[in-house]
Simulated assay, not measured.
Amino acid sequence: MTRRAAALLLGLAVLLPSLAAAAETPALTICLEENVPPLSLRRGGGSGFDLDVARAVADRLGRPLAVQWFETEADPDSSPARHLNALLADGRCDLVGGYPLTERRLEPPASPRGRLPDFAGARPEDRRRWVTLGRLIPTQPYRRDTLALVVGPAAAGLEIQHLAELRGRRLGVEERTFADAILTSYRDGMLLGEVTHVPAGPALFEGLERGETEAALVEAHRFDAWRAAHPETPLRLAAYRHPLGFNIGFVALSTAAPLVAQVDAALDALLAAGSLPRLAAATGLTYAPPQPPAIGAPIRRAMLQED
Results as ranks from 00 to 15, higher is better:
residue 107 E to N: 11
residue 276 L to R: 06
residue 268 D to W: 13
residue 73 E to C: 09
residue 137 I to F: 09
residue 60 R to M: 07
residue 109 P to C: 14
residue 202 P to W: 15
residue 306 E to Y: 14
residue 290 P to T: 15
residue 67 V to G: 00
residue 14 V to T: 15
residue 178 F to N: 09
residue 232 E to A: 11
residue 70 F to P: 02
residue 286 T to C: 05
residue 270 L to D: 02
residue 82 R to G: 04
residue 223 F to G: 05
residue 16 L to N: 11
residue 90 D to T: 05
residue 247 N to V: 08
residue 166 L to I: 08
residue 47 S to V: 07
residue 225 A to L: 12
residue 216 A to Y: 04
residue 220 A to K: 10
residue 180 D to P: 07
residue 212 E to L: 15
residue 18 S to G: 05
residue 273 A to D: 05
residue 216 A to Q: 10
residue 205 F to R: 09
residue 91 G to L: 04
residue 179 A to Y: 08
residue 53 V to M: 02
residue 138 P to L: 12
residue 237 L to W: 04
residue 288 A to W: 06
residue 61 L to D: 00
residue 53 V to G: 04
residue 244 L to T: 10
residue 260 V to R: 09
residue 171 L to T: 12
residue 211 G to N: 08
residue 200 A to E: 07
residue 269 A to W: 06
residue 79 S to F: 13
residue 66 A to F: 01
residue 102 T to E: 03
residue 14 V to Y: 14
residue 220 A to D: 07
residue 267 L to N: 01
residue 225 A to Y: 12
residue 84 L to E: 02
residue 105 R to P: 00
residue 50 D to Q: 06
residue 159 E to M: 15
residue 150 V to R: 13
residue 136 L to E: 00
residue 269 A to L: 04
residue 22 A to C: 15
residue 159 E to D: 12
residue 245 G to C: 04
residue 177 T to G: 01
residue 280 A to F: 02
residue 64 P to A: 03
residue 35 N to H: 14
residue 200 A to V: 13
residue 236 R to G: 11
residue 232 E to M: 08
residue 66 A to S: 08
residue 81 A to M: 01
residue 256 A to M: 08
residue 148 A to Y: 03
residue 110 A to V: 12
residue 45 G to K: 04
residue 199 P to Q: 12
residue 105 R to I: 07
residue 135 R to Y: 06
residue 45 G to C: 05
residue 145 D to E: 15
residue 94 D to Y: 10
residue 119 F to R: 02
residue 302 A to R: 08
residue 233 T to P: 01
residue 177 T to M: 06
residue 81 A to G: 10
residue 203 A to Y: 07
residue 260 V to A: 02
residue 163 L to S: 00
residue 164 A to K: 11
residue 18 S to K: 10
residue 261 A to Y: 07
residue 96 V to A: 01
residue 208 L to W: 11
residue 257 A to C: 09
residue 161 Q to E: 15
residue 282 A to D: 01
residue 252 A to N: 01
residue 189 G to H: 08
residue 28 L to I: 00
residue 111 S to N: 13
residue 246 F to Q: 03
residue 123 R to Q: 13
residue 28 L to N: 00
residue 125 E to H: 09
residue 40 S to Y: 13
residue 113 R to G: 05
residue 302 A to F: 07
residue 155 A to S: 05
residue 288 A to F: 14
residue 192 L to I: 14
residue 228 A to Y: 12
residue 166 L to T: 02
residue 22 A to Y: 13
residue 219 E to I: 14
residue 193 G to T: 06
residue 115 R to K: 15
residue 190 M to V: 13
residue 273 A to K: 10
residue 131 V to H: 06
residue 241 R to W: 03
residue 163 L to N: 00
residue 191 L to Y: 11
residue 58 A to F: 01
residue 41 L to N: 10
residue 91 G to E: 09
residue 271 L to H: 15
residue 276 L to V: 01
residue 114 G to L: 08
residue 7 A to I: 14
residue 175 E to V: 12
residue 109 P to R: 11
residue 179 A to D: 03
residue 254 S to W: 00
residue 131 V to S: 03
